[in-house]
Amino acid sequence: MLILLALIAGAVAGMAIHFAMPHRSDRGVVLAPAIGAATAGVLYTSLQWAGFAEDNPWLWAVSIVVPVAVAYLATLLLTRARGKRDAAERTRLGIA
């Protein structure tokens, strides 16, 4: 049940990242929160399987800090890739 806390923390961090980063219109509003929540869920589950108990601070530190970094980097890279692809497509179509 405590995995929900990690999932919510990842989604909230992703939402904050979405609104803090520029070019919001170039990506969906769910992209960063989904990446944060998925990363938090995978990490929490993996650490639980590795033997970390729910009262272990490393489980919570990793489940909260790493999804923030992953969501930020993934959102940054995906936004840049989208911008480049859109610019190439506009050039190909002769729009800009």
Rank of each mutant, 00 (worst) to 15 (best):
D55S: 03
N56Y: 08
T45C: 13
A69F: 09
R85S: 15
G51Q: 04
L2C: 05
A11S: 02
R85F: 11
A96H: 02
A20H: 05
A37E: 12
A20F: 05
A16M: 14
A16L: 13
I95F: 10
W49F: 05
V70W: 03
L73H: 13
T79I: 07
G51C: 02
V30D: 11
V30P: 02
V30E: 10
L31T: 10
A96R: 14
T39R: 10
A81K: 13
A20W: 14
L73D: 09
A6G: 04
T39D: 08
T75D: 05
F52P: 02
I3H: 09
D86E: 14
Y44N: 03
A88N: 04
A71C: 11
L73C: 12
A38Q: 09
M1R: 08
I17F: 04
I3G: 15
R82S: 08
L7H: 00
A61Q: 04
T39Q: 07
Y72D: 11
S46I: 11
K84V: 13
A96V: 07
V68S: 02
A61Y: 05
L78D: 09
A32Q: 12
I64M: 14
A20Y: 06
T39M: 10
R80K: 14
A11K: 00
Y72H: 09
A16E: 10
V66T: 03
P33V: 09
G14V: 04
A20T: 02
A88T: 08
N56C: 13
S63I: 04
A9I: 05
A13C: 13
K84T: 15
R85A: 14
A13W: 09
A40D: 07
I17T: 00
M1G: 14
R24Q: 15
I17L: 05
N56K: 14
T75F: 00
A69N: 00
G28P: 00
K84S: 14
V65K: 01
R92P: 01
A6S: 13
V12F: 03
I64A: 04
S63L: 05
L2N: 08
P33G: 10
V42M: 10
V66C: 01
A88S: 10
Q48H: 10
I8Y: 11
Y72N: 09
A6L: 11
D55R: 07
T45F: 14
Y44V: 01
